[in-house]
Amino acid sequence: MDHLMPGITARRVPTARVTTHVLEAGEPDGTPVVFVHGNVSSALFWQPSMLALPAGYRAVAPDLRGFGSTDRAPVDATRGLRDFSDDLGALLDALGLPAAHLVGWSMGGGVVLQHLLDAPGRVASLTLVNPVSPFGFGGTKGPHGELCAPDGAGSGGGAGNPDFVARLAAGDTGDDSPLSPRRVLLAQYVKEGCVPEPLEAMVHSMLTTATGDDHYPGTSAPSGNWPGFAPGDRGVLNAMAPTHFRITADDLAALDPKPPVLWVRGADDVIVSDTSMHDLAHLGSLGIVPGWPGEDACPPQPMVTQTRTVLDGYAKAGGRYTETVIEDSGHGPQLDRPEEFRAALLAHLAAAVAV
């Protein structure tokens, strides 16, 4: 396969749900660490992190359905992120891994959090890297994720930028527009000014995203609430809508066992933030999206605060979590600050293995 770094192998693994394309590195009998990518990307984004694991570990990175070279199975958004989570469980079964350390980035953070909720005994530890809020992306307010409107208006498939979607579908590798995949990667996935390697593999990875109603961005429904649309029931962005995906502190408090959690985030993330440039409410507050109904009705979603609130509840119920903030880093600290990310991850894994 093109775009593989030395030391990485690839194969397609049949499972009970989909045939999943998987990257692997390290020792076949080593302690398994499973890396789950985010939206509009694939396992290729994890290659440097996989190779950075020391001896004794086995790195596994699947492409989620509709990304990379995994089956283009449709996403049922009414299940939230469970299509992806269940696919992950089926892959662990197929690989004969009863338990693993899970690392999830962005949307992948929501996938592994959902998997923890559904199968806590299979999660040796959890690492969340700039994860989507446990209350979904868009359409909520306050630390406990109250819906701004009952229908989740402002979130889901209608929030996808049609020009960006069209450029993905066309395989655009250029840099002539701020909405080209390459420019989005360099300005938003990482801290602007950083050029992560292998860059061309990552641009290629973004272009493997399946587009359309069943994939990215998904369907949309009309709404009488600002900004005029609500989540649909199909596709990737709807799977993260707050009407479909929601994990509370009470949900995590009920888990047994409670594996240790590492939350790593870049201090300068513009995607998952309390002032996210992808949150229509925040853009409305800046006057970029017209008609914003105001702070009381639809304030910017406090995404980081919401994650901290849920993890604080986990800790109060007997769980353990560590928050690590990496300075001068964007949405992908594993890409723009790989040494700091590696240090945090390895310390977390070592502590979890020692327990």
Results as ranks from 00 to 15, higher is better:
T324V: 15
D29I: 04
A241H: 06
D268T: 07
P299W: 13
P338C: 04
T127V: 13
H215T: 14
A230K: 03
D268K: 09
H215W: 12
Y314W: 10
T140F: 13
T20H: 13
G136W: 02
D175L: 08
N225P: 07
Q301G: 14
M303W: 04
V33F: 00
A59K: 06
A254R: 00
G160M: 02
G284L: 06
T322V: 10
A352T: 00
G232A: 15
E197L: 15
N39C: 12
P260L: 04
T173E: 12
V33N: 00
T322L: 13
Y314E: 00
P62T: 05
M277A: 06
D175Q: 14
G109L: 00
E24G: 01
A159Y: 03
A210P: 08
A166E: 12
A73D: 09
G89A: 02
S329N: 08
G96C: 14
A25P: 06
K258F: 00
V270N: 14
P74G: 09
M206N: 01
H215I: 10
P290Q: 14
L280R: 12
G291W: 02
A344R: 10
V60Q: 07
Q334R: 13
A187H: 15
D76G: 05
R182M: 10
W263P: 05
D71T: 03
A90I: 07
V236C: 15
R58A: 05
V236E: 12
E197Q: 15
D76R: 08
P338Q: 04
T322D: 12
D250S: 03
A94H: 09
A253L: 01
G319N: 00
T15Q: 11
L88S: 03
